[in-house]
Design a protein around this nucleic acid. Structure first.
Length: 414
RNA sequence: GUGGGUGUAGCUCAGCGGUUAGAGCGCCAGACUGUGGCUCUGGAUGCCGGGGGUUCAAAUCCCCUCACCCACCCCA
């Protein structure tokens, strides 16, 4: 019979790998708490329309990468392809904008996109994201980027550069698009077919094209940064100097644009030396709350691609030392079982296979599995009301009496 | 969605029309009855990814399919 396998693009996170994830998540939670961010959990399933209205009806994400389906009542639903839309929806639905001036949220969870699977790209992937609502000041942008920087840093990936650009407010964007189209239209014939398509649907994205001829054509093209109004220009300057003041590595990338429609103003990506893909990215989206039927609330946020980040870092977690218990004889086994419970209550990690095998055999197994501490309990020890703790690396042994065993073992191994 | 590569033992891979499909590592047993990593001896391994075809004969050639990897695309 054919065996059942994980669905294409989906994968199991097995314990060995999860250790890295959990260790990172622990540090991330602490960091986020210190910046005053609160966790929010939104459903994996949303109305399809939510993403059409936020991510953008013409974007690839919405037109060809969403998992959509009808439920039994014929509702058009979708597995979320990203996190921001849901958080904005929840923020509006819970009326946070009436309760307090500034709201800071973070989330972590699976997102779904029907992409072709590749390294660091899965159909179910994980993002840790951050969103701030109610703040217009450029310091919010800086705060959020600093947080992104330090979060990524805490994973052990330290060769980070923030690529920074500013797309301008709605008015700047409108003005600039006119200029850009006037420039590109006469040269459209020289662009690749992907870019021809982008021209109509998502003009800004032509700057992302890696095709050499397109790059050549766009060499002379007007850039969004040069068509900013005075207010946007000032804001951009403040963001840039703010990041520099923190000593973060920043690269001003005048050609940086983003794939989601909702970005306005500041946009940024976290790049590492080893990867061409960004490991985290985000930006300001001051008009999104309105697009989803709410009041105008300025907001800024980012998301970290955890699958990519975890593939990059070699996190070493400080785990509890493992104590492997070995019992010789039935009496020792019975008494030992109680001893293990006692040690666990002290917070120690102890395990055993309960098997009746020669001591040599047990030690060999432990040695192969790189277990550092063995607990040995046989008749000899039982008669003296004690047991043996052996360090497999130094080969030293310690005799410990049952009385107050937990504390003594703890001192020894921790 | 487009193009290319790879699927053989638990792992890394060799075999590329012709005996019963191999190596290294790992695994199991023994030498060695309460003290391990070394050594020696012996042992088990497999729908050769799946389906179809060509052939006297297919892991090997052809077609289809599935999965993984790489690049594009997309994006974090």
């Amino acid at each position: 019979m054919e065996s059942v396998k994980a669905v294409r693009g989906m994968r199991d996170l097995l314990p060995e790998e999860l250790e890295r994830w959990q260790s990172f998540e622990e540090k991330a939670r602490q960091l986020l708490a210190r910046y005053g961010y609160q966790e929010i959990r939104t459903p994996v399933v949303e109305e399809k329309g939510l993403f059409e209205r936020s991510v953008g009806e013409q974007t690839d994400i919405v037109t060809k990468e969403m998992y959509t389906f009808l439920d039994r009542k014929g509702r058009k639903l979708a597995l979320r392809p990203e996190g921001t839309a849901s958080v904005v929806r929840a923020y509006l639905e819970a009326n946070y904008f009436q309760k307090r001036k500034i709201s800071r949220f973070w989330y972590l969870g699976p997102m779904f996109r029907y992409d072709r699977p590749q390294k660091g790209r899965y159909r179910q992937f994980y993002q840790l994201g951050v969103e701030v609502f109610g703040g217009q000041d450029p310091f919010f942008d800086v705060e959020v980027m600093a947080l992104m920087f330090y979060l990524v840093n805490s994973s052990g990936v330290t060769d980070l550069t923030i690529h920074l650009n500013h797309l301008g407010c709605a008015q700047c964007q409108h003005n600039y698009l006119g200029v850009l189209q006037k420039f590109v239209r006469p040269r459209a014939g020289f662009l690749c077919c992907d870019c021809q398509r982008r021209l109509a649907s998502n003009t800004l994205r032509i700057f992302d094209c890696k095709n050499e001829r397109c790059a050549e054509v766009l060499e002379e093209a007007p850039l969004p940064g040069n068509y900013l109004c005075q207010v946007c220009q000032d804001r951009y300057e403040k963001v840039h100097t703010g990041l520099k003041a923190l000593g973060l590595s920043v690269f001003e990338d005048k050609r940086l644009v983003r794939g989601l429609d909702y970005y306005t103003g500041t946009v940024f990506e976290a790049m590492t030396g080893r990867e061409t893909n960004a490991v985290a990215a985000g930006g300001r989206y001051d008009t999104l709350t309105m697009a989803l039927g709410g009041p105008a609330i300025p907001a800024v946020g980012f998301a970290i691609g955890l699958d990519r980040l975890m593939a990059l870092c070699s996190e070493t977690s400080s785990k509890l030392p493992v104590i492997r218990a070995i019992f010789l004889g039935e009496e020792a086994r019975k008494r030992g079982f109680l001893l293990l419970e006692e040690l666990r209550r002290e917070g120690l990690r102890v395990e055993t296979d309960y098997e009746e095998r020669p001591l040599k055999n047990h030690l060999q197994t432990a040695s192969r599995e790189k277990v550092v501490w063995c607990l040995i309990l046989g008749e000899n020890e039982l008669n003296r009301e004690q047991f043996v703790i052996k360090n497999m690396e130094t080969r030293r042994q310690y005799e410990i009496s049952f009385n107050g065993a937990g504390q003594k073992v703890k001192e020894l191994v921790c």
